[in-house]
Design a binder for these strands. Structure first.
Lengths: 190, 190
DNA sequence: ACACCGGGTCAACAACTGTTTACATCACTG
DNA sequence: CAGTGATGTAAACAGTTGTTGACCCGGTGT
């Protein structure tokens, strides 16, 4: 009964989570190829060898990051009210880019070269676009995918700190343009 | 006067251009870090050492690719008629992604880690967004940049061959959605 | 006391990276 | 035709990468 009160100086699940968090950050920010396992380990403050131990390989870690992002996206997409979809989508898209939908979308753009990881990536993008098309009552899957691609691009450049005013735009700054864009792409007007 | 009729088996400018073309393709498709100089040299069918000879380094080659893209974008942007901007922009954006505006936009998303290259990248993105804002008579620079980011994201996923129907969409398929998006973002409707 | 085992560290490995150096080959000039 | 500079080649370099195997440490049961 000692395990419950002691902070467990050596905690496997905790270090595993720290590695996962650091990896998600690095992969989304710099991409797969530009990220080294030593970078991730240093960010997490643990030894490099633990990546191979807990995730089998760098690609295994990337897959775990994708799955993590998938879960997060599924969760945020679950509690969206069926009406007022344009404003709701815009609110999510304009949200905090460090954590949230944009952050996950950018990670979904990253490619590892690993086939299994790419399948996960593609599956989520497809299901997400299908859900988006269904939620807005729009029949064309193409417009939903254009919408996702546009949102991902915006999130990518929004997260970068170089192109102002986009880089320094606040949530309220982005809400207006995003609403207009979503309506024009997804809401039928004819 | 012999140089004009002989094919010049050893032609410096020709091999330099082949290296540049191969590099642009690789960098846009896979990004900077995921591309090796040997990949580029093999694609161009020349020796690896010539990259260092003609471009000083991998980063120098990347800078040359950016400058090349900048020139191409400036050229295509020069002959755009001042009116009917929405349709004209949509036509350019929907155009062939293997060569043209989308292709160049994707390259502009790529980061090398080199400071000089990033400055070139940022400068062009800024000037392009300013020109876009001016051409459409829209005051807000933010909306123009959102527009560019969206277009870049769309081009990125359009070039990838995995997410259908976006990946297999033709120029005419994309024209409609893009027109709607551009109008909603850039054309004043108040 | 002892062995055991989950958790963590360390050093080393082989493969790959960008770059350079020394050498070969071609085209052209005197 | 000799020679000279431009063009291309091959091999090797030093550094980095992902990965692995041997080892350590602290707690637990016996």
């Amino acid at each position: 009964m000692t395990t419950l009160q002691t902070p467990r100086r050596r905690d496997a699940v905790k270090t595993r989570r720290m590695l996962l968090d650091a990896a998600v950050h690095r992969f989304t920010q710099h991409g797969y190829a530009a990220t080294t396992v030593r970078d991730i380990a240093d960010d997490a403050g643990v030894n490099v060898a633990l990546i191979s131990r807990y995730f089998r390989s760098k690609e295994g870690l990337f897959e775990a990051c994708l799955s993590h992002s998938v879960e997060e996206l599924e969760r945020t997409a679950a509690d969206v009210p069926p009406d007022r979809t344009a404003e709701e989508i815009a609110r999510q898209m304009a949200g905090p880019c460090a954590r949230g939908v944009p952050h996950n979308l950018v990670l979904l753009l990253r490619k590892s070269g690993d086939e299994a990881a790419d399948r996960i990536r593609l599956d989520l993008l497809r299901s997400y676009s299908e859900r988006l098309a269904a939620a807005t009552g729009h029949q064309e899957l193409l417009r939903a995918q254009v919408m996702i691609a546009a949102a991902a691009g915006i999130a990518l450049l929004h997260a970068k700190t170089d192109m102002t005013p986009l880089a320094t735009a606040t949530e309220t700054d982005l809400f207006g343009p995003l609403c207009d864009m979503i309506e024009s792409l997804l809401i039928k007007t004819d």
